[in-house]
Nucleic acid binder design. Sequence first.
DNA 1: TAACTTTCGTATAGAACTATACAAAAGTCA
DNA 2: TGACTTTTGTATAGTTCTATACGAAAGTTA
Lengths: 389, 389
Amino acid sequence: MTAPTFVTGSGIMLGYIRSGTARTRTELVAQLGWSRVTVGKRLDELMDARLIVASGQRDSTGGRRAEIFELNKDAGFLLTADIGGSHSRVGVSDLAANVLVEAEVDIDIATGLDRVLTWAHEVYGHLLDSLGIGVSDIVGIGVGVPGPVDPATGRLVNPPIMPGWDGVLVADYFHERYPDAVVAVDRDVNIMALGEQRQAWPEHQTFALVKLGLGVGSALILDGQAAHGAIGAAGDLGHIRHGGEEICRCGSRGCLEATASGWAIRRELKKLGYSVNTSRDIVALAHDGNQDTLRLLADMCTQVGHSIADLVGLFNPGVVVIGGNLANLGDLILNPIRAAVVERVPSYLIDQLVIAPGKLGGRAGVFGAAILAQDAVCDPDRVSLATRG
Amino acid sequence: MTAPTFVTGSGIMLGYIRSGTARTRTELVAQLGWSRVTVGKRLDELMDARLIVASGQRDSTGGRRAEIFELNKDAGFLLTADIGGSHSRVGVSDLAANVLVEAEVDIDIATGLDRVLTWAHEVYGHLLDSLGIGVSDIVGIGVGVPGPVDPATGRLVNPPIMPGWDGVLVADYFHERYPDAVVAVDRDVNIMALGEQRQAWPEHQTFALVKLGLGVGSALILDGQAAHGAIGAAGDLGHIRHGGEEICRCGSRGCLEATASGWAIRRELKKLGYSVNTSRDIVALAHDGNQDTLRLLADMCTQVGHSIADLVGLFNPGVVVIGGNLANLGDLILNPIRAAVVERVPSYLIDQLVIAPGKLGGRAGVFGAAILAQDAVCDPDRVSLATRG
DNA sequence: TAACTTTCGTATAGAACTATACAAAAGTCA
DNA sequence: TGACTTTTGTATAGTTCTATACGAAAGTTA
């Protein structure tokens, strides 16, 4: 059977509570269209399973105050990983996706995905010890990887910067080590976008994020879910040929990432004799007012802005969030990007468009990975099946 | 109440039958997870309402043959309109979206949307008379308009080529004249894409269509539905600034449509002394082997191909269909477009990508409008409510 | 033809869900 | 304080849906 036997599944209701669509009995009855008795019963089931708790009361509208329910943040813990091309972060969060502890490290993904995963697993051990949490308390794991993930199978798809890892099922690594946890994997930029959109821009259904670090990545969110495309490569602004003859780390020639990105700026600065390694070095130079860096950044912003204009014209998002380390430069890069976008997008689109810095900074990925894990743990069918008598 | 009282609504089942996901009792039971008794009851309701009919039998798999159900094409008629910038088509179809009669006319939308609608309404009168159909037999109307439609309200949004019609609710015009019909309105390119995807490429969940006529338009289909974006402008490849100083009919400068489109080719050919009016004139010149036209077309294909590369990189569709009048030139434009796309898109995306001509030709819009109308008529909640005892 | 398979209809019992009524709890307002 | 409002719990009856069993219809296969 593909559909659950019980049509008024508690998992469906948990979705309403979790998203804030309906938080009180009366609201749930109105939104779900179920009877008051059934809603009460399902609430009892979710509370018995410790998945929700009563968290307060609505202000009175002239009568008894309605009780507000929310996801029980203490119903288990989530592991999160934001594996980037040159930098990775991991964290442990409660079920409400509040990240409790984090750790980060500079590892080049080119040294091998297995080494990054091993590092992550070791760090999880330390973090769990420090929190006094056991492996069996981990109910979900969310992982972001720097390459496309097939939406159907969860396997890596020809990852441009992880050659040799095509077809790998990252979830297996964690399933073996955390047997009680649900594992969800998605592209790193998708996870950042998921974090920003759910946390900071929930009112926007159509959302885009552009990540400017050493690389250039982007992601599209539609109705609260990342767009994956046919093979999980949707949203990849960085590896479209843009011009020039520079060879990109993905193997192609003239990608946006090869001509206008942190990589490109680092390459040019090195030619000029500067010692630059990470995107944070570029940020530091720009903060110092280094003219070469500022000039290269301005050029990058124009080119990136033009690509964002393509994205806006094609996808018509309500917001484009600029994230990644270079976004720490604030208006220094936002203003020229905005100018380049305005230059190329019809005015009727611009009026409705917000271009803004990320509100979560470097933590967007770890946070989004927690949301991804939470989504997996709170899967309606899973919950409905688990909570019935 | 927002949700229906009956959870096993017949409208949900109609969706399975209509899409072909499940066509026999056994398949419906397996797919829906409902009991055999309930499925039988809902089938009876849908047959009583004349919305479905038994249409044949599956081959035996060793026992009694299963009865196949399908949408009853005779349960009412649909009006369809594909209103373009310079050319419009209307048609009448049965409920299965088989277009029975069609009519077309060259009207410039700049002369006023009201004139096009009046024309459409008059032609519907003649077409219905010829078929012996009354106004009360019309159960749905699907309309494509050459500009963005707000997905929330159904109103036109700052239509670049229909100045003065901002905020207009096209559905009202038809509601007044066909009170029994459900009316659905969407952008013309979205409707073309809907027609092609549902009819010709149902196996592709992520789909794009690029329309090359005088203008350049495009649309994205995700999971069988057109992507609308924040204000209904998603998919508009044609009005992103691309280069040059030509002023586009949308008011901006240097749009793709201004530099590489039927408009641009017509403009250049006129400068060279040719007499060209419609996109069909361009097709005729190209068929005659006119070198100026071929040169301009080749240039257009390169630029359009580069824009399609952006689209592919951002959206990762499984298919990009090339439609519109210029697509009648076949490989003459498909090959250079393919070459330009390959030039700019990473190889791992190309391997999975199909670039193909539309299979419905100029009728895609009228067909898609019929599908849109059918979708509206077969809305699950509507049907569930209408068919219960 | 006989044995087997799959589809389909119906009958029955029981589970799940709704509607309704009533009462209690917990507020506001004059 | 008393009248009113909204929220919540519970009991009862009735409806909807499921599970199961049985049999008939309509095929295939040996």
